[in-house]
Design a binder for these strands. Structure first.
Length: 431
RNA sequence: GGAAGGAUGCCGGAGUGGACGAACGGGACAGUCUCGAAAACUGUUGAGGUCUUCUGGGCCUCCGUGGGUUCGAAUCCCACUCCUUCCGCCA
């Protein structure tokens, strides 16, 4: 959620910043929020005044009863009863208006960072680093898409995955399955110097999925287990961000760094029919996420740390990559500033998004109610959250299949992964 | 899945309808004492909202969550959640 108080006190500043996202509807929402908020405050002031009067009368009733003056008590009670009815009406009205404000607030996106580039779509995302390792010319044996080569090598079996679970599910076998797991372990081990490894639940409550911003607006993108009112996580960001939800941390604890491997579940409601082949898009995939809870002041530096860590993983796999920054028109709802890492896959002839690193300012933390206290100071402050995919397995897997394919059809395992491959140094060509 | 008990402030723990934002103890912080420290003594010590004539003050809310009863609820009633113990089942 954005800071309602900021919207109230500096509406023009918020409006200007939000305008950069390029949505006229959004500006109307801001106005409506402001308007409803004003009404809510007016109602609550009247409600509280009545409550104060009722509280006062009740105290007097107590004293009169003690003193044995039943008649006087009765008459005050009657007065209080009438006030009570009035209060009930105002309270209901307040709950309605306040609820409407909250509904709006939950759907209003984050304010973009000042330095985030302007733009209207993903075409306007500037390349800020790289490309690195990109060849001028790719030989023919690398120009074959991974779904063909990997299937032929027996390490990808999407046909049977579909038989078991339906469209857009994938299955890796043999060294292909081992490679998936190796990528996870590589990502976890590489970041273990500073990040605590967590194995969180993959099923979360509605409240948890609301905290990170997926609900209420993007309910169609998530798998729901309605009978138990649980949701499958689309990313480890969801449970990790809410890990300290509702808690007040000591500033000295910050920044908190965590990482987790989890499966990720996405309905891909808007992308049916897109990227249906191979490993580019699936309903279920593996990912290692790195995440930080910081003070607002630590945010900018942490964003770069997470980005550097994601970059280190990719460059360690000897893959051609570049880093782009997401422009205001292409930014996700919760994002304050974000970068994507893209890997070039010569077989698909495409840049694949393999990591997204984002700073959420206090947007998620306000929803999740993650606060911190500075020693010696009164009150609490809302934390900042950041996260990044350390490594999203399927697309990296695909990029390895295409970039590391040898002229004989085998696929060489990047050195960094070999410790996790039970001695295998390559996926041998089909005989 | 069945049964019983429980949920109160930073922690422990009282409180079963009237001045309770909450006794008492511990912790933490500040002061007194001291060369300094310990001990002792004194004081302070939750969060959120809103208004304001704003280095302050007023009012409202919060005792697991949500409803209800009442002039008045931590306290009574209902539902739910979570925890503990026992039984059953189980990777």
């Amino acid at each position: 959620m954005i800071d309602l108080r900021l919207l109230r006190t500096q509406p023009e500043r918020v409006r200007t910043a939000m305008a950069r996202r390029g949505s006229a509807e959004l500006l109307a929402q801001l106005d409506e929020t402001l308007h409803l908020d004003e009404r809510a405050r007016e109602i609550v002031a009247r409600r509280d005044a009545i409550r104060a009067r009722v509280n006062d009368l009740s105290k007097q009733v107590g004293q009169l009863r003690k003193a044995g003056d039943a008649n006087a008590a009765e008459s005050l009670q009657a007065e209080s009863r009438i006030l009570g009815d009035e209060e009930k009406g105002l309270a209901a009205e307040y709950d309605d208006v306040q609820g409407a404000v909250r509904d709006l607030l939950l759907r209003i996106p984050n304010v973009p960072h000042d330095e985030a580039p302007d733009g209207t779509s993903d075409h306007d995302n500037p390349v800020v680093k790289g490309p690195f390792g990109l060849l001028d010319d790719y030989p023919a044996h690398q120009r074959v898409p991974h779904w063909e080569t990997a299937t032929a090598l027996g390490v990808l079996d999407n046909e049977r995955a579909t038989k078991i679970s339906g469209a857009m599910f994938t299955m890796q076998r043999g060294l292909g399955a081992t490679l998936s797991r190796a990528l996870c372990q590589y990502a976890l081990d590489t970041n273990a110097d500073a990040f605590e490894e967590i194995r969180p639940p993959s099923l979360v409550t509605t409240a948890t999925l609301t905290a990170t911003g997926q609900l209420p607006k993007f309910a169609d993108d998530a798998y729901a287990i309605e009978r138990d009112d649980l949701w499958c996580i689309p990313t480890a960001e969801v449970p990790l961000t809410s890990l300290y939800g509702g808690e007040v941390l000591d500033e000295a604890q910050l920044p908190i760094r965590m990482m987790a491997y989890t499966p990720c579940y996405r309905r891909e409601a808007g992308s049916a029919g897109r990227d249906t082949r191979g490993m580019l898009r699936a309903h279920e995939f593996d990912k290692v996420e790195i995440l930080a809870v910081t003070t607002p002041a630590q945010g900018a530096e942490m964003l770069i740390e997470l980005r550097d860590r994601a970059e280190r993983l990719i460059s360690g796999l000897e893959l051609p990559y570049r880093i782009i920054e997401i422009c205001t028109g292409d930014m996700g709802q919760s994002h304050h500033r974000s970068f994507d890492l893209e890997v070039y896959a010569p077989g698909c002839d495409n840049w694949l998004e393999v990591s997204s690193v984002s700073w959420f300012s206090d947007y998620q933390a306000r929803r999740a109610d993650i606060r911190y206290r500075t020693a010696g100071e009164k009150g609490t402050q809302i934390a900042n959250t950041l996260n990044g995919s350390a490594l999203a397995v399927p697309r990296v897997w695909a990029a390895i299949m295409e970039n590391h394919r040898q002229p004989d059809g085998s696929v060489s395992i990047p050195t960094a992964l070999r410790p996790y491959m039970r001695g295998a140094t390559s996926i041998p060509a089909a005989s």
